[in-house]
Design a binder for these strands. Sequence first.
DNA 1: GGCCAGGACACCA
DNA 2: TGGTGTCATGGC
Length: 221
Amino acid sequence: MAKANQRNALLQVYDLLFAEYGPQHWWPAKTPFEVIIGAILTQSTAWTNVQKVISKLIAADVLTPPAIRNILDKWLADLIYSCGYYNVKTKKLKAFVQHLFDNYNDDLDTMFKQDISDLRLELLSIHGIGEETSDSIILYAANKPSFVIDAYTRRIFSRLGYDEANASYVNFQALFTSNLPQDAALFNEYHALIVNHGKLVCKKIPLCSNCCIEVLCKHQT
DNA sequence: GGCCAGGACACCA
DNA sequence: TGGTGTCATGGC
């Protein structure tokens, strides 16, 4: 597909999703640190489970870097139990807050002052933070334009006939970053809309214009 | 009871 | 470099 057509098609998908669902107001968190904790906890886990755990962490007054750093592994594992993979995720949460303390004295703002590529590399070097989680943190916690590729994105754009959906994470991400304006608000809304649509389709909830995607499929193929 | 959910890592060929 | 097993609860 020609570059201009690709750009127009991506914007058309965005417009249809936005017209259908409206603004999503993502990420559902009150602070950048809460975004990061949620991004780690939601790995391969339904968001409803994460919400319960976030509430528990707030109730226990441990949703801060020093509190997560100092709490015993066993207690943290108990608190995040409902998310699944609680032993693995305990290590991941601990690894992040330790990194934040060692390098920035718990100051996220300083960490986020880097440009996107440096920040992404640094996040990827932390245990438990892969490509999707790092992009989620950059976009939703640091408010910088880094497009998030997740299972929903691949599924939907694969259905739309994009071969890039089967490519590596970075190559698929380039489809969006090379065709869309580098706008954090746009990337934020686009990914949120994709996830919202994906969830509804996944739950087989009938959508009056679920057909918007079906129509696009016919146009693309 | 089976399947899947807003992944990442360790290990192996 | 790519494929596979593992981590695990909760909702439908």
